[in-house]
């Protein structure tokens, strides 16, 4: 346990056109992580809206050692964004979260506390338990979400209640290990990460989080997403 208070957390946030949101997130992370050693790594995929300019301004306010801008020339996908950010992470723990404020930084202390209490390798945020929740979803969106969840729980027995959530804390070595064997994209990528980690026997804990969808209908699930999801499920059945 004596290494625990030397823990450093690297918060990796992939962005694309998140000029306003990245500033809000950075402010909220600094507000809620007061006595914690951390850095924020912004992996921006060449946003045309000036996200990177804002990040540079934020570096002036908070310090270049606290906010790292590790940009890439163009949109190259979420999975590789994490790998890219991970290369520059100096913490022994890594937090990954979305930039659109659907993941609120106020939950970061509970992730860290949970890790400290349990010594977990991964702490994953779950929307489907008491004190968790979702806002801004239509009935259809809820229905597909529940259906997808029941299907995955029945077929994969993953041992976690929220497979497609992407607000997670990883021990750095564990993230490096798991991410190298993941090939999926989008929603399925998050599911593959947690299922592979579970199969490898890593200790996974959950904390409740709330998920506020501010851009109404932004996470609409169309037919093609459902097909991708089913393919992902089949892929995980035969490979894990």
């Amino acid at each position: 346990m004596e290494v625990q208070h030397k823990s450093k957390f690297s918060v990796i946030i992939p962005t694309y056109n998140e000029r306003l949101n990245i500033a809000l997130i950075v402010y909220l992370v600094f507000k809620h992580l007061r006595d914690v050693d951390f850095e924020i790594i912004v992996v921006d995929d060449g946003s045309p809206d000036g996200t990177q300019d804002i990040v540079k301004q934020l570096q002036q306010v908070y310090g270049e050692d606290r906010i790292l801008l590790r940009a890439r020339p163009k949109k190259l996908g979420l999975g590789t964004a994490y790998i890219h950010g991970l290369k520059h992470a100096s913490g022994n723990f890594v937090v990954i979260m979305d930039a659109d404020l659907s993941h609120h930084p106020k939950y970061l202390p509970s992730f860290i506390r949970k890790q400290l209490e349990t010594g977990a390798d991964i702490v994953t945020g779950t929307r489907y338990v008491k004190d968790g929740g979702v806002h801004g979803w239509t009935l259809m969106r809820k229905l597909t979400s529940r259906g997808a969840n029941v299907l995955a729980q029945t077929l994969l027995w993953p041992g976690v209640s929220d497979l497609t959530g992407s607000f997670r804390l990883y021990r750095k070595s564990v993230l490096e290990d798991v991410i190298s064997s993941c090939v999926s994209k989008g929603y399925v990528f998050q599911m593959e990460m947690i299922v592979r980690a579970s199969r490898k026997g890593y200790h996974i804990e959950e904390v409740p989080i709330t998920f506020v969808d501010r851009v109404f209908g932004s996470s609409k699930l169309g037919g093609s997403e459902i097909v991708e999801y089913l393919k992902g499920l089949a892929y995980l059945l035969v490979t894990t």
């Binding site: 489907y128 008491k130 004190d131 968790g132 929740g133 979702v134 806002h135 801004g136 529940r146 029941v150």
Partner: peptide, 18 residues
């Protein structure tokens, strides 16, 4: 799916706090 849908946790107050 039915039970999950009925008990789907929602958090309208969180949107206001945000």
């Amino acid at each position: 799916v039915g039970v999950g849908l009925m008990q789907f946790p929602t958090c309208p107050q969180e949107a206001l706090l945000l």
